[in-house]
Amino acid sequence: MAEFFLPAVMSLMNPAVLFSITVGTVVGIIVGAMPGLTATMAVALLIPVTFGMDPLVGLALMGGVYSGGMYGGAISSILLSTPGTPAAAATAFDGYPLTRQGKGGVALTVATWASFWGGILSTIALLLMAPALAKFSLRFGPPEYFVLSIMGLSSIVTLTKGSMVKGLMSGFLGLVLATVGMDPLSGFMRFTFGSMNLFDGVPFMPALIGLFSVSQILDLTAESHIVEDLSKTISSIKRSKLPKGLGPTITRGSIIGIIVADYNFSDVPV
């Protein structure tokens, strides 16, 4: 692998490639921060733009957009409790309460560092494990998909705080919502009420935005300010530093992310 690695790194040192990575990352962050536009959508939109480019520059641009988009989703998630990308949904759980306490800058700093190290570690993992994973993914069949789905559902037990019955009801409510649309086996339309928009099921991004944003609008009706602690200024948010002792948490999160991404690599929806 070393004989491919070094030339690949050297080719990345090309100023045109570095410039395209920078532009791609900035565009990706802006796109990712917009609720409704995902990183994958940004890459898909960019494909026609890269047709006339050198393949390496085009790939670097798309990689930058994707990576920037994955991070950018955390910005609106932390500041508005509206995830910019589906992957940033969990960031809102802890990030937005920090924003309300006037610690939005700290949350963004942590998200930036965690995203950076997560990206670096997952790239190394991908470099080392991609060939083995590619072979392994071909052996995945319906039983493996089923077991992984059960594993995903079992996470309800660990994520539920308080009443387990309510947690399980929420999980089953999700499964009920997922029944809307065409039945994959018979092709029968379930609970679509004749609406063509529901033939493919409840679209993920509108559901996510509705779930987070509308509930947020209703929750904020009694507030005069989103941020409870108004003593912090914008410049103090910009100067926010990374709290100490987060290294082990970021490493642990990166390893979990790599494992989950490996499942996605096997095209398994976890």
């Binding site: 009801m169 089953f172 409510l173 499964l175 009920v176 029944t179 039945d183 086996l185 018979s186 029968f188 379930r190």
Partner: peptide, 17 residues
């Protein structure tokens, strides 16, 4: 009848709920 399997899954969800 052709969607009997789909109905069975919904019955399971309805029963559990």
């Amino acid at each position: 009848d052709r969607a009997a399997d789909a109905a069975r899954y919904i019955f399971f969800l309805a029963g559990t709920m």
